[in-house]
């Protein structure tokens, strides 16, 4: 298990960098555990007052508990909350594209120059090189020119994003906004352990009721509960830990992935 203190310090360092380098950042809050932890870290980084706007992209199909939780926490934590909703013409689209449209619209409207998002590296096989600071163009494409060559013709060393040294490139040419991922180095288990340690509030949909609980929170069309008896944080941690370490998990998932990766070398 990674040291929670180290994970926390790294994220806080990044959040303070954001405050220093950007004029108008926004934190995306899906009301789920990751982005709520992100908000909690923001409060910790800036002594309980989050100096950024907080954006909830509301597909208007969330669970009732989610809205209740949002309003309660927004009040308790004194969040400068912006709720983005879909325009009528996009209502027919899938919720992912609706969310993208809402975000585009809100960026445009508030002139956000940095968007702080709670994604984790362990969610996607190819995300290995995703950066903490990632410039995006108007269409959210990642490929934005960012290197200014110095005298010797070599771009800035910051471009390498030397995270071990806390060196991050934060200035980008031609970008519409920069996406920032302060939780990139956390895992699902780390998040739950941190929630427990810091007593961070989470929406009660995560806790098992009638043998079912949500492992991720989203709109009604995209998230459904899984079978579980974990009705406390301790039980959830135990469940995830067991899941990760179980014989089946080892064999069927990471092992299978590693196997496929090795075989992809060819050389048969």
């Amino acid at each position: 298990m990674a040291n929670l203190k180290d994970l926390e310090s790294k994220s806080i360092f990044i959040l303070r960098e954001v405050k220093k380098r950007f004029k108008n950042p926004v934190v995306l809050w899906s009301i789920g555990k990751d982005s709520t932890t992100l908000l909690y870290l923001c409060r910790k980084a800036f002594y309980d007052e989050i100096p950024f706007k907080v954006l909830h992209i509301d597909t208007e199909t969330e669970y009732e508990e989610t809205y209740e939780f949002r309003d309660r926490i927004a009040k308790e934590w004194k969040l400068d909350l912006v709720v983005g909703k879909s325009e009528e013409k996009f209502k027919e689209k899938t919720c992912t594209s609706r969310k993208t449209e809402i975000l585009k619209k809100e960026i445009e409207k508030h002139k956000f120059d940095a968007v702080i998002v709670g994604i984790r590296r362990d969610e996607n096989s190819i995300r290995g090189m995703e950066r903490y600071f990632s410039p995006r163009d108007r269409e959210f494409r990642w490929n934005v020119t960012k290197e200014e060559k110095n005298e010797a013709g070599i771009g800035s060393a910051q471009d390498a994003e030397l995270s071990g040294w806390d060196i991050y490139a934060t200035e980008f040419k031609d970008s519409n906004h920069v996406r920032i991922h302060p939780l990139l180095h956390w895992t699902e288990l780390d998040i739950w352990q941190y929630i427990k340690k810091e007593n961070i509030p989470v929406v009660n949909l995560y806790f098992a009721k009638d043998g079912k609980r949500f492992r991720s929170i989203g709109c009604k069309c995209c998230s459904s509960p899984v079978k579980s008896r974990a009705d406390t944080i301790d039980k959830i941690i135990k469940e995830i830990d067991k899941d990760r370490n179980s014989e089946r998990q080892g064999r069927d998932t990471e092992k299978e992935y590693n196997m496929q990766k090795l075989r992809s070398l060819g050389y048969m």
Binding site: S125, D243, Q249, D252, T253, E254
Partner: peptide, 9 residues
Amino acid sequence: PKVRKFSKI
């Protein structure tokens, strides 16, 4: 791409 969905990839 492969994504982690809880205990599965």
